[in-house]
Computed example of a mutant assay.
Amino acid sequence: MRKRLVLAMAGVLLAGSLTGVGRPAFADHCDPSVQGAECEDVGPALEDFVDIRQVPPGDTGVRAGRGSFTSRCGRNENGHRNSDNHIVTPGVSNGAHHVHDYVGNLTTNGFSTDESLAAGGTTCRFGDRSAYFWPVLRGRTGVGAQTAASPSPSPDEPGGASEGNVGRILLARSVTLQFRGNPVSRVVAMPRFLRMITGDAKAATNGGANARAQWTCTGFTNRLTSRYPLCPRGGLVLRVLDFPSCWDGQNTDSATHRTHVVFPGANGACPAGTRAIPQLRMTLAYSVPSGPSFAVDSFPEQQHNPVTDHADFENVMPDRLMSTVVSCVNRGLRC
């Protein structure tokens, strides 16, 4: 059971510490105008963190073939963010109740359509207008402090402090968008406008059936954990977000956004009735504050549990570029 913490004021530093990692900071969910008010913490909890050196080597995520294609789209240097999700909650503003970082398509918001995305600009090379997005990661040391580059949201801002998402938004140091091969078969092209999600933004209350959170540190990529990793000094926190890669051959979306593209089996083979498509792996690297003082944005009831990490993708590559991706993957090249 998650230990819930009670703090005196937002941004206060806990008196305790974890061995060798400094003093943790957690944000509470109270009215900051009431000085000294006692408030119930909205997470994360101390048990949500683990020293990466204590995680045993093992599974490294979805198995893949030798070939790959990397789409270079930057790391959201232009600050394209909102709390929408046009895949899961289309036509709704603040449908996600937490802030997303976007790369690729410059127009993505809750009202995006296939047509609007096809007409949008992009941060990616080679005309890749795909929409790639994930919840932001925040540093929570000195919660409440603002910077010009990435202020904490106001209580009334969508996805903001009134929903427990507080702290300085951390810009990823690097974003790697890699499309990988299947280890047992050739892949076919993704259809244009294919929509996919990975992970479960409500995994803390839904259970782990759809959870796909994978966290680690630079230098320790042979060990993945569903908890926030505490990295050795100088190490970067990595979020590894693997997408499903076995397509039903017909649909670009489904009612649950999960049944039209599913994950392969443990050996990498796709289930009967599906065919392998290039498998998207997002790897996001961050420099975070020392100690357990960072968290992913979440729905309020999820308490910033790291198991809720997730990401979304809509393929808006030109057909010629997708053909290049398939060729690189099937020929075992690294493009």
Rank of each mutant, 00 (worst) to 15 (best):
M1K: 12
M9T: 12
M9K: 10
L14E: 13
G16R: 04
L18Y: 01
G20I: 03
G36R: 02
G36Q: 02
G43F: 01
A64W: 05
N85I: 02
S93R: 14
H98D: 06
H100S: 10
G110I: 00
A118W: 06
G120E: 10
D128G: 12
F133Q: 06
V136C: 04
G139Q: 04
G142N: 13
P151K: 05
P153G: 11
S162P: 05
E163H: 01
G164D: 00
R168A: 05
L170I: 14
G181V: 04
P183D: 09
F193A: 15
L194P: 07
A209D: 07
R212P: 01
T216R: 00
T218P: 03
N222P: 01
S226T: 07
T252W: 10
A255C: 02
T259W: 10
H260L: 09
G265Q: 05
G268C: 10
G273C: 10
T283R: 03
V288E: 02
F294Q: 06
P300M: 02
P300T: 09
H304Q: 12
N305I: 02
P306L: 08
P306C: 08
D309M: 05
A311T: 10
F313N: 06
F313Y: 15
N315A: 13
P318R: 12
R320G: 11
V325G: 07
V329Y: 03
